[in-house]
Amino acid sequence: MSKKKTCMTVIENRAIAEGIYSMVLVCPEGESFGAVRPGQFVGVCCRDGSRILPRPISICDFDAEGKLLRLVYRCAGKGTAEFAGWEAGSEAQILGILGNGYDLSALVGKKVLLIGGGIGAPPLLGLAKSLKQADEAAGAGKVTAVLGYRTNDLFLAEEFRRAAEVIIATDDGSAGVHGNVIDAIRELSPEFDVICACGPMPMLRGVKALAEEKGVKAWISLEERMACGVGVCLGCVTKTAHKDEHSNVNNTRICTEGPVFDAEEVLL
């Protein structure tokens, strides 16, 4: 049995912005997840038994051995509010690692534009770090991160700066470009030949249109309500341009075939 629910230990859990938390978890002694890909996620199980479904949360960062996971999450409801109260030293039941994640081999050595809207930014941080390392080894490539926020509460932006060139957009104009991430890209015209994006659906639609306009590939990370997180319940599907191999209809499982998709393959 290669997968299981792992009893991890919380080693840090703190607010990094208004309603946004960063939690670091470690595997039990002698255990690890092995190779983790940026863009993959885990199911975080609530301690309160009245909440039976694991919460899908992206892996923001991880170590090379796959023993440490960092999750950055927004307090969005009952489950995430519960997580915010978890103390260092306490246990967390984690289902995973889940999903496909980004395929680094398709990105290394290229001019990659990362586009993160709000709470969509965290998984791109791990991607930026992995790409920086791989680009350095390959001696080619450039990563630019365009991060969209509501206000100037710019969580993770400083960490992104260590791995990528950073462009900020804020809805209220209090930092960076006044507007959304697409406005910022139009205004500052960063160079890119492939896009990786994670964020709310309207932003992803904008990203897909931008990629079509520029004739580049866009890898986008999708979200949907999930029950199992492993591919059995068919709760999390998204419509696809072509017939999906697993489902045999124009529907694909975000938790299993995704959450990262070629934007051309999914209907938004």
């Binding site: 038994g49 009245s50 909440r51 039976i52 479904l53 949907e224 309500r225 999930m226 029950a227 319940c233 068919l234 709760g235 999390c236 599907v237 998204t238 697993h246 489902s247 045999n248 209809v249 124009n250 529907n251």
Partner: peptide
């Protein structure tokens, strides 16, 4: 093959969940 229903198809409820998958299956 059946395509099933539109999403959202699942929702958690107190001590349980609702689903309306619509019997999506590959045939």
């Amino acid at each position: 093959p059946w395509e099933g229903n539109a999403t959202p198809r699942v929702s958690e409820t107190w001590g349980g969940m609702l689903n309306a998958i619509g019997l999506q299956n590959p045939g």
